[in-house]
Simulated scan of single mutants.
Amino acid sequence: MPNFFTEADSVNAVNARVGADINPRLREVMTSLVRHLHAFVKDVHLTQQEWEMAIDFLTRTGQICSAERQEFILLSDTLGVSMLVDAINHRRPLGATENTVLGPFHVAGAPQREMGSCISFDGKGESCLFEGRVTDLHGNPVKDARLDVWSDNAEGFYDVQQPGIQPKWNNRGVFTTGVDGRYSFVGIKPVSYPIPHDGPVGRMLEALGRHPYRPAHMHFIVTAPGFEKVVTHTFVGDDAYITSDAVFGVKETLVAPFERVDDGRTIWRSPFDFILTPDGE
């Protein structure tokens, strides 16, 4: 009996066309996608006009993408898909530092800096000492751990968003731990900022009654020989957007202390330890 397309049997009609000798993982992913997509359309009784609006939305999302801007990743971020994929692929033992989204503003090749040095060069913002240890799951210090760090400036912009305005490599640097596993550097207390919201994703957020803001955070990529890479942030706990991050990146374990010190060198101090998981665990 041919598999003619009907409303009731739509999934079988589509999935029956999948070839016999294709990649097994591709078969698993695509047949599941068809099942869920058709179930969604039936669940909401999608109208022809709504379908056309969806096609137009996806078309405009693709058209705004460029080498500097990836609107589809922004869409994934704001729908929580990016964080879900990250969570599934980075399950770690209790106590290990959790991952969160990389974000679009990481730049490879940031300069190596001396431990304790300052990474903020534009003279703006409230200075903050970031310090702590990199350890294994048992509290042993990790030598030669590499911390690639970056943040926005006091006006909520990353240096790559303001070439010619901010100094190159402003609020960026790479630090490597010694035998004690300790790290320290001086930056600024980061501030909250909006994700790009002048395109289709921004209009979607507005229609949903959602704001485009991310709570203040410092970015870290921590790597060390024999350990899993950690891509994460530390968050300012009293930020107005801490419970409503537009991309769902906040995890309770990543909310860091920001203590006012005014010690003559910095206004703030933010201690945070990174606990790494051995490769393959």
Rank of each mutant, 00 (worst) to 15 (best):
M30G: 01
T31H: 04
T31D: 13
T31F: 07
T31P: 11
S32V: 07
S32F: 14
V34M: 08
V34P: 04
V34T: 12
V34N: 02
R35S: 15
R35W: 06
H36K: 12
H36G: 14
H36V: 14
H36D: 14
H36F: 10
L37W: 08
H38G: 09
H38Y: 13
A39T: 13
F40W: 14
F40D: 07
V41E: 12
V41A: 15
K42N: 04
K42V: 13
K42H: 05
K42R: 14
K42F: 01
D43F: 06
V44Q: 12
V44E: 12
H45E: 15
H45C: 08
H45V: 07
H45Y: 08
L46C: 06
Q49C: 09
W51A: 14
W51T: 11
A54F: 08
I55A: 07
D56R: 12
F57A: 07
F57R: 04
T59G: 01
I64H: 06
I64P: 00
S66M: 00
A67S: 13
E68T: 10
R69G: 07
Q70N: 14
E71I: 05
E71H: 06
F72S: 13
L74I: 00
S76P: 04
D77N: 13
D77M: 10
G80D: 04
V81R: 11
V81I: 15
L84M: 15
A87W: 05
I88N: 05
I88M: 09
H90T: 14
H90L: 03
R91C: 14
P93D: 13
P93H: 08
P93Y: 09
L94G: 01
G95P: 02
A96D: 10
A96P: 06
A96S: 07
A96M: 09
A96R: 11
T97I: 11
T100K: 10
T100Y: 01
V101S: 05
L102G: 03
G103A: 09
G103N: 02
G103F: 01
P104E: 10
P104C: 09
P104R: 03
F105D: 14
H106G: 03
V107M: 11
A108P: 09
G109W: 06
A110V: 07
P111Q: 10
E114Y: 13
E114F: 12
M115P: 05
M115R: 00
C118F: 00
I119R: 05
F121I: 04
F121L: 01
D122M: 01
G123Q: 02
G125A: 08
E126N: 05
C128R: 07
L129W: 00
F130S: 05
G132S: 02
R133L: 04
V134K: 01
V134Q: 00
V134Y: 02
V134P: 02
L137Y: 07
L137N: 07
H138T: 07
G139P: 02
P141K: 00
